[in-house]
């Protein structure tokens, strides 16, 4: 990851709101982050923290209504995606930004052959004819490690196993040589050995093709293995972001620390029970005016109830949104 290179993706102050019967849900609240070319950014956070909604907002995949993007800027290669017309956005989607979703069992269309589904973006974005697209699709299947690619193009999704289908999804996402690949919990629905294989595949493809990747997961263990940088989300906000080794060596936010403590440790005593974070993730009905982690935080003090902490940089490249300074063991000033 070349330090200082202009970011390929630059998100600032993104706000996404759902209007539901029960009122508004502020699912993404002033999220900002950057992605350098070729970088692998891990995004962690528990269920409902807004990881998926953030990524889908970037690329206009949310149903509107109920979703609405209230503000922010998403610069992709210097151009604001949020200002694009639907047509322009469609040209970016699937060609320069690829998507892989969580559940490979349902993410492919059951009534079309795998070949057809891989060829679709090739024909749409790359202007290939049927023959060229077919040849390229076979190459792609081989690239993601599916043997006998030519024959398998004619198969339907139900003839593939879960892991194989996720490989197909990756092939589709990579079909037009995207600059950014967004993988939303791509291994969560797979069993452990298959997970490991998919991880290996992505690592390998990244070396080969050099695209930047955003990898969403619940699993900090996975992040440790592949990511360059990590972003921790909580309650629709980014609460901490740092280089992987900084985050693991020196977690600043109480939520991150709690997450790290829930990781089973390889060296830890066998009998030790896995820790869980007490309490419920918050529902976010309005613009937060206090820290959303406050109720589950053992370090919370009066300021946390009055203000919502903004990101602050204890050291270069490490942001945290917390009023408590772990270095001094007391409230942070400013």
């Amino acid at each position: 990851m070349p330090d200082g290179a202009a970011p390929i993706l630059e998100v600032s102050d993104l706000k996404t709101v759902f209007t539901t019967r029960g009122g508004e849900v502020h699912a993404v609240n002033a999220v900002s982050f950057e992605l350098a070319p070729g970088e692998l950014l891990g995004v962690v956070g528990e269920s409902g923290s807004g990881k998926s909604v953030t990524m889908m907002s970037l690329i206009g995949l949310l149903p509107m209504p109920p979703a609405e993007i209230r503000g922010g800027q998403v610069l992709f290669d210097g151009v604001d995606i949020l200002k694009m017309t639907d047509d322009e956005l469609r040209d970016v989607r699937g060609s320069r930004i690829g998507f892989v979703f969580q559940d490979p069992m349902t993410s492919l269309n059951p009534v079309f052959t795998v070949g057809f589904q891989i060829m679709e973006p090739l024909r749409k974005h790359m202007g290939m004819n049927k023959k060229q697209a077919r040849a390229r699709a076979a190459e792609l299947l081989e690239l993601v490690g599916i043997p006998e690619a030519d024959a398998r193009l004619r198969d339907f999704p139900h003839q593939f196993s879960g892991g194989m289908r996720q490989r197909v999804m990756i092939a589709i996402a990579l079909s037009c040589d995207p600059k950014v690949l967004i993988a939303d919990e791509p291994t969560t629905a797979l069993d452990v050995t298959i997970q490991a294989q998919i991880l290996e595949l992505v690592k390998e493809l990244r070396l080969k093709l050099g695209m930047a990747i955003i990898w969403i997961t619940h699993d900090l263990g996975v992040i440790a293995g592949i990511a360059d940088r990590v972003m921790v989300m909580y309650g629709g906000q980014v609460v901490e972001q740092a280089k992987v080794k900084d985050l693991f060596a020196d977690p600043q936010h109480p939520y991150t620390r709690a997450l790290l403590e829930t990781l089973p440790s390889v060296t830890g005593k066998r009998s030790e029970r896995l820790k869980t974070i007490e309490g419920q993730p918050p529902a976010i009905p309005e613009q937060p005016t206090s820290c959303s982690f406050r109720e589950r935080c053992s370090l919370a003090f009066d300021r946390c109830a009055r203000e919502n902490p903004a990101l602050y940089q204890p050291q270069k490249g490490h942001d945290v949104a917390c009023f408590w300074d772990v270095k001094t063991g007391g409230p942070r000033d400013g």
Binding site: L61, D91, R93, T106, N109, K124
Partner: peptide, 14 residues
């Protein structure tokens, strides 16, 4: 509402 529809949109299809 199914996932494959989201996939189709993510491919940039009209």
């Amino acid at each position: 509402g199914l996932d494959y529809v989201r996939t189709a949109r993510a491919k940039g299809l009209t």
